[in-house]
Amino acid sequence: MDVLTIAFLFVAGLLAGAINAIAGGGTFLTFGAYTLAGLPPISASASSAVSQFPGYVTSTLAYWSDLKKIWRSALVLALVSMFGAAAGAFILVSLDNAQFRVLVPWLLLAATAVFAAGPYLKPAPRPQDATPSSGADWKSPVVQFFTAIYGGFFQAGMGIIMLATLGLTVRGEYHRLNSIKNLLSNVISLVAILVFVSGGIVAWTYALSAMPGVALGGYGGVWIAKRVPQAYVRALVVVIGLLLSAYYFISM
């Protein structure tokens, strides 16, 4: 891999980290950058999961004070997420690139649609504690299991989907739900990465080229978030998602 490719992936990671900090959706950039750099789609998806992981960790640490109060209620969801993520990651590893390539434009299009609808899917703030709602304890783990399967298979749009499903099945105000979402994103990502590494599908040089950019972009994104309207960044991510979807539809 030449210096220009490394620089390209670093910049893509930088932008992805900033976009994640402002509005989410940075996975679209890293996945797209890896495919443009020549990685096959399965390796691009796995490498993107690796490069995005530091951002999940830092976002969870930012909510640490909230998580300390609700970790017991999140534990069951975390355990369920482990099994779901493993299932989704193993499904990805079992496919070949030709099979996955057929799915990619549809996955990107669906993730883009979910991302565009994100502001309408966010749960309304409620004053109750962030614990499973009474009489529906079974719903939250079941729904989370299927969400984790998607996250283990293809992470684009995972956070928006998870926040929406948690809002339907778990009590709590927005920031507490978001803290649970960030924790579960770590679990799903870590399990998926372990499966991807064992399957030998991570392109480490590519992933490590983008990872410092993701970390720096996430830090700088907080500063940008205070000055750039989130709607503009969200529109940019939607355009990127649509362009990537069109690219894969045309190249199928």
Rank of each mutant, 00 (worst) to 15 (best):
A148S: 15
L14V: 08
L29M: 06
M1D: 06
F31N: 04
L36M: 13
V191F: 07
G135S: 11
Y219C: 00
V76Q: 01
T5L: 11
A207R: 01
A164E: 00
N186S: 04
V142M: 15
L168V: 10
L39S: 11
V233N: 02
S251W: 00
A124G: 09
F196W: 04
K139N: 07
A78P: 06
L184K: 05
P123D: 02
G157W: 02
N182V: 11
V233M: 05
L4T: 11
A74I: 03
F249N: 08
F90Q: 12
G84Y: 02
R126W: 00
D66Q: 08
Y206C: 04
H175M: 14
K139T: 12
A113L: 15
L92D: 06
L216T: 08
L244H: 02
A21W: 01
I201P: 01
G172A: 03
T165A: 11
L183T: 04
S94V: 08
L107K: 05
G213M: 03
L103E: 01
L75H: 03
N186W: 00
P123T: 05
Q128K: 09
G221N: 09
A12C: 11
S73D: 14
M162Y: 01
V228H: 02
L61T: 02
T147I: 14
V50T: 12
G17R: 05
F8Q: 09
G32D: 07
G88L: 10
D96G: 13
M211T: 15
G13F: 04
A225M: 07
G241Y: 09
T5E: 13
P123V: 08
L216A: 12
R171K: 15
P119Q: 04
G151W: 06
G55Q: 10
L216K: 10
L166P: 10
K122M: 09
G157Y: 05
L15D: 03
I42P: 05
P212Y: 05
D2C: 02
A78H: 03
L216I: 14
Q128N: 14
A225Q: 09
L177E: 10
V50R: 08
N186M: 13
A16H: 07
I161F: 13
F146H: 07
Y247D: 07
A7F: 06
L29D: 02
I193Y: 08
F8L: 13
